[in-house]
Design a protein around this nucleic acid. Sequence first.
DNA 1: CCCATGCGTTCCTCATTATGGAACGCCATT
DNA 2: AATGGCGTTCCATAATGAGGAACGCATGGG
Lengths: 250, 250
Amino acid sequence: MIQSVDRALQILEFLRKNPRGLGVTEISISLQVAKSTAHRLLMSLEEHGYVQKFGRESTYRLGLKFIEMNYTVTKNLNVLEIARPFIESLSKETGEIVHLVTLEGQEIIYIDKVENSSTIRIYSQIGRRGPLYCTAVGKSILAFLDEREAKKLVDKIEFARLTDYTLVNREALATELATIKKDKYSYDNQEHEMGIRCVGAPIFDHNGRPQYALSVTGPLDRMSDEILQHHIPLLKDTAKKISRSLGYIN
Amino acid sequence: MIQSVDRALQILEFLRKNPRGLGVTEISISLQVAKSTAHRLLMSLEEHGYVQKFGRESTYRLGLKFIEMNYTVTKNLNVLEIARPFIESLSKETGEIVHLVTLEGQEIIYIDKVENSSTIRIYSQIGRRGPLYCTAVGKSILAFLDEREAKKLVDKIEFARLTDYTLVNREALATELATIKKDKYSYDNQEHEMGIRCVGAPIFDHNGRPQYALSVTGPLDRMSDEILQHHIPLLKDTAKKISRSLGYIN
DNA sequence: CCCATGCGTTCCTCATTATGGAACGCCATT
DNA sequence: AATGGCGTTCCATAATGAGGAACGCATGGG
């Protein structure tokens, strides 16, 4: 790990967490380096567009370079292109929000979202991270990862009781993962957010790895057990079709 | 400029230009450094999620971290939120694609796009860069920047004849910029892409700077002079409304 | 009105730290 | 089985990034 690169990237992280901007001194304190060091790092980042000063403020914020980089990354994530039509249909058929996520480290990242009601998307979840243990998508992925990898991830989970319904111990989670593996879909019964219920299913890539997952999300009153009996087959079918499109056999 | 940080960010640039992935050796050659140096830089970037290896390939690509960073950046670019409803109306009224761009260095970056026909957006222009001298949005911004800054930018332009209609000399551009300043809107008559015609107008931020611009884009047959006589007042009005919402007085 | 404070910026010396070369191991290709 | 190309690891060296001190500027309080 190269010290100066690591510090530069740490700065980006600080700025991500402080989107209103940070000054040189604040950053030098957070990093525990001299002001001149922080200043030099910022100049390097600024040169490449990753941070910028706005107007005549002397605070730095994340730069527009990230919008450009995001363009390339999403353009080349072909799961997005492949999955798009499928998740649009699923959203239309269920009338609910559909999310597509990918496993990334010990969390999931939302990589696409479709809601049929409106075209607004700027403030969607896309790009947000979420936990594995209390989301339908996360549990679907965990349940279908090979045992060794799943164990590794489960061991690292730091459970937080986000709602009264959140599972907060490994035993309860293990039991549920077994059920998910049998049923081939997962629930999130207000475990992540009160009043919100989701059903999820894993998507397998051409290596047979449950790299992605799909979910249908809605408020409690529109996600009763009877209604879910309608949604779940559609969800499972969509996930299966996407997996097949990604080159997954069987 | 810190050498190692600069090199690390250069690697990201190489990967952006080679989205199919690059190996350690290829990168070390591009950077003109030892393989071990390239390797160490890549490990630092990988640690933070900015690059990653896919599957069992040994080539690196841009990482999903950029999706996460993009989320924060766009969320805090409040011009997007403010402009959204206006550009949606404009798209509905004109029936054409509407783009929102921001000035960034010597180019524009597309930061939002609305097309009323479909919800597809993944492969939109958002995040792409474009030139100042042959786009309606670019010319609108150039025309209204204060003289000193405009001159700086115009002097740096490297003209490329993208189509038969592209303006490729400073004199012709200067004449047109004067017209734009008088009319308060700009044309792109197939200057950037054959068969595509655009009209653009500047958006002023609270400092009175034409930081953003707006355009209506369509194929030649739907963008005749008569039709444009209908679109242009709507465009100018929309740009004015957004400017006012951003705090621009007068 | 002036001084104190806190900020960003610049400069220079020192030793920390990134560098490049060499050597290794792995894989695919012949 | 041998070769070439790749990613990876290690290590000594000196290049380079770090920190401290000093400056200039703005701000606000006495």
